[in-house]
Design a protein around this nucleic acid. Structure first.
Length: 491
RNA sequence: GCCCCCAUCGUCUAGUGGCCUAGGACACUUCCCUUUCACGGAGGCGACACGAGUUCGAAUCUCGUUGGGGGUACCA
């Protein structure tokens, strides 16, 4: 299908930070480029001068890098092709395939109102298609400045075979009139610029969101007018929120921006996995859900993509996160946590040896969703327990209740006594210590015995395996915290 | 309003005319493991939107209805 070599592109506009949907479209492009050894072009769609910002350019590039999405050409900037765009506008004008339109926004609005009243397609009625020289001069004399409109073919059916959806067609008359390609101030518009730039980059396959379906119908006639080769089109399904609206930066900024996932310490491999799996899975192996994009590209094909929109499910994303954390070594988790600045606790882990740090991470990484959980006191994966004694004044209800039990004081004072004579900790010693404690207190293994220790140590009745926890924490810290709790109970 | 797209458990999906009393995953839930939480293991709940047609036979093909989404700018 792509004898001359597949050429793909992703053209985000730097009017906001990298959007989850853009990332997903980029991913699908990347997957296909890798699979068929194509060229992937990265272009910044920055023709809207008021809304485009350099900080967003940085954000988008950082986002792609974080996800591991690389490109072969670019970043190109649409704004640098102004002269070229102008040239093509003039060519269309010369060939009478485009024309000047002098309608004011008020006139346009009136046309729409009238059309709507008749249940017709709203849009421009092409009234200035065939203005005479005199008419144009008259408008100019009024001080009007024209926009340039492209002549859509009359009553023609615009059809293409979509690589995701199959046969598609839109009637030209349903497109809302001849589209403006250049504004009054000379700036060209998206639907025109994108065609010129894609052609100039020799793009032969356009993968974009389903929201562009009508744009494709507007763009194909421009290719035809210029006698340019029309690329293949593939419209991928959209991401919807739980209440079924298109995921937008403005309304759902927290979940829509890649930068937020970076900040929260998500694993890029989990985001990639989720984004791909939203609309695609391994052909003939739907049991394989957890995979990397490098595994996926070997089998990826647009025809296997789902046609319907997917609803963003944070719970499923969390599951992918857990799965990918489990596949990471403790070394790797530790390195990423450090590099990302997620170990900035009050006393950080530096007082533990490297080996102990790795033990700590292994102990905690089972249920880890994102790296920021490591320093979030509310999270079960919080490392706070290793860094500071619990605040006994401010315990949760479960912990409070536990300490009020009569056995709590008994357990802790006996433990305190045993610690006086205990040798330095090892897993075996801790194990023995707990057995001794059970004997001394007459309590069998159970909540009555172990919960008070947990509260004294971590301020919580739940947590990681107690023997490992105490062993890493070590004798001194345990002693300090048990004493502090006993003191607290005396008052 | 008009145009376009989509339609299997709550969610993501497998399924391309008989292997379907519809399979998997997330979520929920029961039990087991476990000093706790989690992890892990074994179960459970739960869907072909509806109506016609084609066919010996339809989740799969056709048409209609309904529902959902997107588009409808001198934004991208």
């Amino acid at each position: 299908m792509f004898e001359s070599g597949l050429r793909l592109r992703i053209p985000p506009s730097p009017t906001g930070s990298l959007h989850l949907g853009t990332a997903r479209t980029a991913l699908y492009n990347w997957l296909l480029a890798k699979r068929f050894k194509g060229v992937f072009v990265f272009r910044l769609e920055d023709t809207d001068r008021e809304r485009s910002k350099s900080e967003f350019v940085t954000d988008i590039i950082e986002g792609f890098k974080w996800l591991g999405i690389d490109w072969n050409e670019g970043p190109l900037r649409q704004s640098e092709h102004k002269a070229r765009h102008q040239m093509v506008v003039n060519q269309l004008l010369d060939k009478s395939l485009a024309y000047e339109c002098f309608c004011s926004s008020e006139e346009l609005e009136q046309i729409r109102i009238a059309q709507r009243a008749l249940n017709k397609v709203e849009g421009y009625d092409n009234r200035h298609r065939n203005l005479t020289k005199e008419q144009k001069e008259a408008f100019r004399a009024e001080g009007r400045k024209p926009v340039i409109r492209f002549k859509l073919p009359n009553k023609a059916e615009i059809a293409w075979t979509d690589l995701v959806r199959g046969k598609m067609s839109v009637n030209a008359s349903d497109l809302g009139g001849d589209p403006v390609i250049a504004k009054e101030n000379g700036d060209v518009l998206y639907n025109f610029a994108v065609v010129v730039d894609d052609h100039d980059s020799a793009i032969n396959c356009v993968i974009r969101g389903e929201d562009h379906l009508h744009n494709t119908a507007k763009q194909i006639p421009i290719y035809e007018a210029m006698e340019w080769e029309i690329p293949k089109f593939a419209h991928v399904p959209l991401i919807l929120t739980a209440n079924r609206e298109k995921l937008s930066k403005r309304k759902h900024g927290d979940i829509a921006s890649i930068s937020n996932y970076i900040k929260a310490g998500y694993l890029p491999e989990a985001i990639n996995n989720y984004l791909i799996a939203m609309s695609w899975q391994f052909p003939s192996d739907n049991n394989k859900e957890v995979f990397t994009k490098e595994e996926a590209f070997k089998y990826f094909d647009l025809k296997d993509l789902s046609k319907s929109a997917a609803i963003y499910d944070p719970l499923k994303l969390n599951w992918f996160c857990k799965e990918h954390f489990q596949r990471l070594s403790a070394e790797e988790v530790l390195a990423r946590a450090k590099a990302g600045g997620f170990l900035e606790l009050s006393n950080n882990l530096e007082e533990y040896s490297k080996e102990e740090q790795l033990q700590i991470i292994s102990l905690m990484k089972d249920g880890l969703i994102k790296l920021s959980d490591l320093s979030n006191p509310a999270s079960a994966a919080s490392l706070l327990v290793f860094c500071q004694a619990p605040n006994l004044q401010d315990l949760n209800q479960e912990a409070k209740n536990c300490l009020q039990e009569p056995e709590a004081k008994l357990v802790l004072s006996e433990l305190n006594n045993l610690l006086e004579t205990s040798p330095d900790f090892s897993p075996e010693i801790v194990q023995k210590l707990l057995i001794n404690l059970a004997e001394k207190t007459g309590l069998k293994k159970g909540k009555k015995l172990f919960w008070p220790i947990r509260v004294a140590v971590s301020g919580n009745v739940h947590g990681a395996d107690l023997v490992s926890l105490l062993n890493i924490l070590n004798k001194n810290r345990l002693q300090e915290r048990v004493k502090a709790t006993l003191q607290y109970l005396e008052i």
